[in-house]
Computed example of a mutant assay.
Amino acid sequence: MSKKNFQSDYIIGLESNLKGSKINSYIEGLVKDFLVKYDVNDYLLIKSEEQITHNEFKTVDFNYFYEKVVYDLSKENDLLDIKTKVCVTFDKRLCTIYDDHSDRYYNTLSIGGCSIVYYILFTLDEIYDHIYKDI
């Protein structure tokens, strides 16, 4: 199966209409604050429809990793460089590590001990709390 046609059957994304930009700004701010603690200042958010779950690691074509995760791998001064990717998720099964500084669960996908993908858990309650606080 080509990853270009792949869409997860297990990912629930956050699509909104009226409050979309407010929600996106809120999430992006929290992601940025979270990643700074791990010395990650440059990253890309992976769209929900392009994310995979632990179930799909066993079945997705390996080209997915080339096309969505390591496509921007480069070498400079004999060092490999890749931009960190981030998946915002509502699935706690994907996030088993607790960060007490942010009060948030997360997990990483690492290559050679280097975290290249962060799965960061958000809850719908916190999203709605943020939306409703200004109403």
Rank of each mutant, 00 (worst) to 15 (best):
T84A: 13
L80D: 04
S74M: 02
V40Q: 07
L73K: 03
L35G: 12
Y66Q: 05
V69D: 09
Y71H: 11
S74Q: 01
D33R: 03
F122R: 02
F57T: 09
L121Y: 14
Q51G: 10
S102A: 14
Y38N: 07
Y38M: 06
S115E: 15
Y10I: 07
V70C: 12
I82N: 13
L18K: 03
L30I: 05
Y43G: 04
I12G: 08
V60D: 09
T89Q: 03
H101G: 05
E67I: 01
Y26T: 01
Y128H: 12
Y64H: 06
L73M: 10
L80I: 04
S110E: 15
G29P: 03
C95N: 07
K37F: 12
N77D: 15
V60C: 05
N55T: 08
T84I: 13
L14E: 09
V40C: 08
C87H: 02
K22G: 00
E76V: 00
Y26A: 02
C114W: 02
T59S: 14
D100W: 02
G13D: 15
L44S: 10
I11C: 14
V117C: 13
I127Q: 00
S25G: 15
Y43L: 04
S48G: 13
I97E: 12
I12N: 14
V36E: 15
H54P: 00
D9K: 14
N77K: 00
L80G: 11
G29R: 03
E50G: 01
L109C: 10
L30R: 12
T53V: 13
V40P: 03
K92R: 14
I52T: 06
K19W: 10
V88P: 03
S115G: 14
K83L: 10
I135A: 02
K47F: 06
D134F: 10
T84R: 04
K85D: 13
K3S: 15
E49T: 09
D125G: 01
L80F: 14
L14I: 15
K92N: 11
Y98C: 03
Y10P: 07
K133C: 12
T96A: 06
S21Y: 04
E49N: 15
D91C: 03
N63P: 11
L14A: 02
I97C: 05
D78A: 00
E49D: 15
S8N: 09
T59D: 13
C114P: 00
I97G: 01
Y132K: 03
S16A: 14
E67K: 07
L94C: 06
N41K: 06
D129A: 08
K75T: 04
G20D: 03
K83V: 13
Y118T: 08
I135Q: 01
M1I: 12
I27R: 05
Y118E: 14
S102G: 06
Y98W: 05
K75D: 00
H54F: 11
D91R: 09
L121K: 07
G20P: 00
I27G: 08
Y38K: 09
C95D: 09
T89K: 00
S25E: 13
E56T: 06
S8T: 08
N63C: 08
K83S: 12
I127G: 02
S25T: 01
E49L: 09
